[in-house]
Design a protein around this nucleic acid. Structure first.
Length: 316
RNA sequence: GGUGCCAUAGCCAAGUGGUAAGGCGUGGGUCUGCAACACCCUGAUCGUCGGUUCAAAUCCGUCUGGCACCU
């Protein structure tokens, strides 16, 4: 137990207050923060991703924020590699990595040391997409049934992205993705970790989300998106531009959506997103739910967290 | 006081004789290289009472509520 490296995770749905708490916690446990956020990795995507400012960091080192141009693509495999490197550096400095961010998928990859293997794009994915367009998703699904019946059983035929991914995996690695998943999901984490999930009353969370979107608009989100598009010549197909609070503005720019409606949609989709995050964290193993409403002050909340870290031998 | 119109799930709403579309919201869930992605599941017997009919949300009457107009 004691020779395992330590790792603290502080996550929760969007707008739950992760950022603020993470700074306080980092200070108290001598940690450096590794962001597990699929949007904050991109430079110049600040307002819409609610990115922490350098003042707010209060001198705490932050990693994996602003490391990619919006023209580049982030993905889990890449995140896992990069974040692991960060952790190693942090450990070498005798400090604790504090993983903060709302992308559960990324956290899982790092925490359970999921192996994604090597992969190069030989155009098979594009071929499958074309096949789907021409012959329909049923044809694609039939293909998967032949290649990997177990995966086909788990993936809904309408979920074209996942069907394609399963097919690509088999094509590239020669192994069925269902076997890969089974093996990887059985892994125990190699770390001595504590996985905290911030939560609060649902109605309150939704209120905070709505409010935050309004604030983003006041801060000039629309202008941020427009200048991003210009600076990097982005279009809606970029991975970075699929982010909430960004993708919606493409319709505003081409005139098919008015601004007010876009704001409404961003709020709605962000609420949906928060719910999905909660669903994800709910089924993750060994998570410790930190219900904001159960504490009257942030100090109490912090103490609760620190007590657990102490019990687990992560701090002394 | 009179005349007319309306009354379908939390909201919007389709449906004019054969046993209730859809959208939004809500809640639940899936997820192992796009994950702030993609995908799945989730609700009523049609204001009330009575009548006509084999059969009514759909036709007739009653009451209640709302809206409009008139005196």
């Amino acid at each position: 137990m004691s020779d395992k490296k330590s790792m603290v995770i502080l996550t929760g749905p969007t707008a739950a207050g992760k950022t603020g708490l993470s700074i306080r916690l980092a200070k108290e446990i001598n940690a450096e923060i590794v962001s597990a956020d699929s949007v904050q990795v991109y430079r110049d995507m600040n307002i819409g991703s609610a990115k922490i400012t350098s003042e707010e960091m209060q001198g705490i080192p932050h990693h994996l924020i602003d490391v990619l141009d919006p023209t580049e693509d982030m993905n889990v495999a890449r995140f896992k590699e990069l974040s692991l490197e960060c952790c190693r550096d942090i450990w070498s400095r005798g400090r604790i990595p504090l993983i903060t961010g709302g992308t559960g998928f990324y956290i899982q990859a790092l925490l359970y040391d999921v192996d994604f293997g090597e992969e190069e794009d030989d155009g098979y994915g594009a071929y499958l997409e074309k096949l789907c367009e021409e012959q329909g998703s049923d044809a694609l699904y039939e293909l998967l049934k032949n290649e990997d019946a177990e995966a086909a059983e788990k993936i809904h035929p309408n979920n074209i992205k996942r069907v394609i991914r399963a097919l690509i995996y088999k094509h590239n690695q020669g192994e069925k993705i269902s076997e890969h998943n089974e093996r990887e999901s059985a892994k125990e984490s190699p770390y001595n970790f504590a996985y905290f999930v911030l939560d609060m009353d649902r109605a309150k969370l939704y209120e905070r989300i709505d409010l935050r979107v309004d604030q983003m608009m006041e801060q000039g989100l629309y202008d941020e998106v427009k200048s991003l598009i210009e600076k990097y010549t982005l279009d809606r197909s970029s991975v970075s531009m699929q982010a909430l609070g960004y993708k919606e503005f493409f319709d505003v720019i081409d005139g098919s959506l008015d601004l007010e409606e876009a704001v409404r949609i961003i709020k709605r989709d962000t609420r949906h997103f928060a719910k999905r995050q909660l669903t994800w964290f709910k089924r993750e193993r060994d998570v410790i739910r930190v219900d904001k409403d159960a504490f009257t002050t942030e100090d109490e909340q912090l103490k609760f967290i620190k007590d657990i870290l102490y019990e687990k031998g992560i701090i002394e």
